[in-house]
C-alpha cells in the first residue's frame, strides 16, 4: 500500500503536460545565492545519507585487498547463503509473477463485485511490518501453530527451514508485479484484445500476442523490484529462518551474523555483492523508465 499510494500520485500526473522549466527559469526563480545554498544542502544531505554508506561498503570490503575479499566470499557458509538466496528468488519471483499477471488481467479486463476490495487486499503485505510477516508464519506453521501438529506428524518442516523462508519472501514480495501491471493495463483498455478475439484468436493467443507485448516493460520493471526485495528481505526471513548456519541463512542473515561476530571484511564482502545488485537494479529501472515511453511510469 505504501508504494501503491506513491504510484497513484505518479500516475495521475502522467497525463498532464510538463511545463518547460528553462523558459520560466529566466524570469522567475530564486536569486543565485539561494539557488546555490539549496543545491548545496540537497547534495550534502544526499551525500551523507546515500553516497557515504554506499562508498563505505566497498571500502570496507576491499580494506585488506582483493585476495581477502575473494577468500571471504568463498567461505562455505557465505557461499551456501548465496545459493539459498538464489533459490528463494528462483521460487518466489516466478510464482508472484504468474499471480501478478493473473491479477492484472482480472482487475483490468473484467468487471466484478468486490474488485476494489481485491485491489486493496493485494496491497496488504506492504502495510505489514516484515517482522510481523514472519510472525504470521510462525503462528501458522510453528510447533504450537495451527498446522504445527499436522506437519509434525508427517515429519514436514516449514518454519526454521527453507520452505518457511520461501513462503515468507512470497508474502513480502506479493504485490510488486501486480501493482506495476494493473494501472498500466487499465490505461491500455481492451480494444486490441477485443479485436483479436473478434478475428478468431483464442484467449491464450490474445494474451501472448497482444497483451504480453504491450505490458512487457512494466512486467520487467515489476520483476526487478520483486527480485530486489526478495534478495534484500531481512526482517521476515530472520523470524522464520532459525539461523542454522550453512542451511537456513540467506545472504542478508549471513551479513548480520558476520557483522555481529566482528568479521567486518566478511560482512562487507557479502554486503558488497548485495549493494552491487541494488545498483544494477537501479540501473535497469532507469533504463526502462527512459527508453520505454509507452510505459508511463514517470
Amino acid at each position: 500500500m505504501v508504494q501503491q499510494a506513491y504510484g497513484e500520485i505518479k500516475l495521475e500526473q502522467a497525463g498532464t503536460i510538463r511545463p518547460t522549466h528553462r523558459q520560466a527559469a529566466v524570469r522567475n526563480t530564486e536569486s543565485a545565492p539561494v539557488r546555490w545554498a539549496l543545491t548545496g544542502i540537497a547534495l550534502l544531505f544526499l551525500g551523507l545519507f546515500l553516497f557515504l554508506p554506499l562508498l563505505l561498503v566497498f571500502i570496507e570490503a576491499f580494506r585488506n585487498g582483493i585476495a581477502t575479499y575473494i577468500a571471504a566470499l568463498r567461505n562455505d557458509e557465505t557461499f551456501s547463503a548465496i545459493c539459498l538466496t538464489l533459490l528463494v528468488v528462483a521460487v518466489a519471483v516466478p510464482i508472484n509473477a504468474v499471480f501478478g499477471i493473473a491479477a492484472a488481467w482480472l482487475i483490468a479486463k473484467h468487471d466484478f463485485r468486490g474488485k476494489s476490495i481485491l485491489t486493496t487486499l493485494i496491497d496488504l503485505p506492504f502495510t505489514v511490518s516484515p517482522v510481523i510477516a514472519g510472525l504470521l508464519f510462525i503462528l501458522l506453521f510453528g510447533a504450537n501453530g495451527w498446522l504445527g501438529p499436522w506437519l509434525a506428524e508427517r515429519d514436514l518442516k516449514v518454519v526454521f527451514a527453507v520452505p518457511g523462508i520461501v513462503i515468507a519472501t512470497m508474502f513480502v514480495t506479493f504485490p510488486f508485479v501486480a501493482r506495476e501491471l494493473v494501472p498500466l493495463m487499465q490505461v491500455q483498455g481492451d480494444e486490441e484484445e477485443q479485436a483479436a478475439l473478434l478475428l478468431g484468436a483464442n484467449g491464450w493467443q490474445t494474451f501472448r500476442r497482444i497483451t504480453l507485448p504491450n505490458i512487457k516493460w512494466a512486467l520487467v520493471y515489476g520483476l526487478i523490484l520483486c527480485t530486489a526485495r526478495a534478495v534484500g528481505e531481512f526482517g521476515a526471513v530472520s523470524v522464520v529462518s532459525g539461523h542454522i548456519r550453512g542451511q537456513t541463512n540467506t545472504m542478508t542473515l549471513q551479513v548480520e551474523i558476520l557483522f555481529n561476530e566482528y568479521n567486518f571484511v566478511g560482512a562487507f564482502a557479502a554486503a558488497s555483492l548485495l549493494s552491487a545488485f541494488a545498483l544494477v537494479t537501479l540501473l535497469v529501472k532507469n533504463i526502462i523508465e527512459r527508453f520505454s515511453p509507452e510505459f508511463v511510469k514517470k
Binding site: L50, V57, L225, G232, F234, T252, E256, A271, L274, L279
Partner: peptide, 30 residues
C-alpha cells in the same frame, strides 16, 4: 542523483544497517 534517490528501496535494509552503524560508531567516519 535523481536515480540514486531510490537506493533505499533497492539496497537490502541489513546492508544499510551495518553501513550506518559503522559510519556512526565511535571509530567511524562521522
Amino acid at each position: 542523483i535523481d536515480a540514486m534517490v531510490d537506493l533505499p528501496f533497492a539496497l537490502p535494509t541489513a546492508v544499510a544497517g551495518i553501513c550506518l552503524a559503522t559510519i556512526y560508531a565511535r571509530t567511524g567516519w562521522l
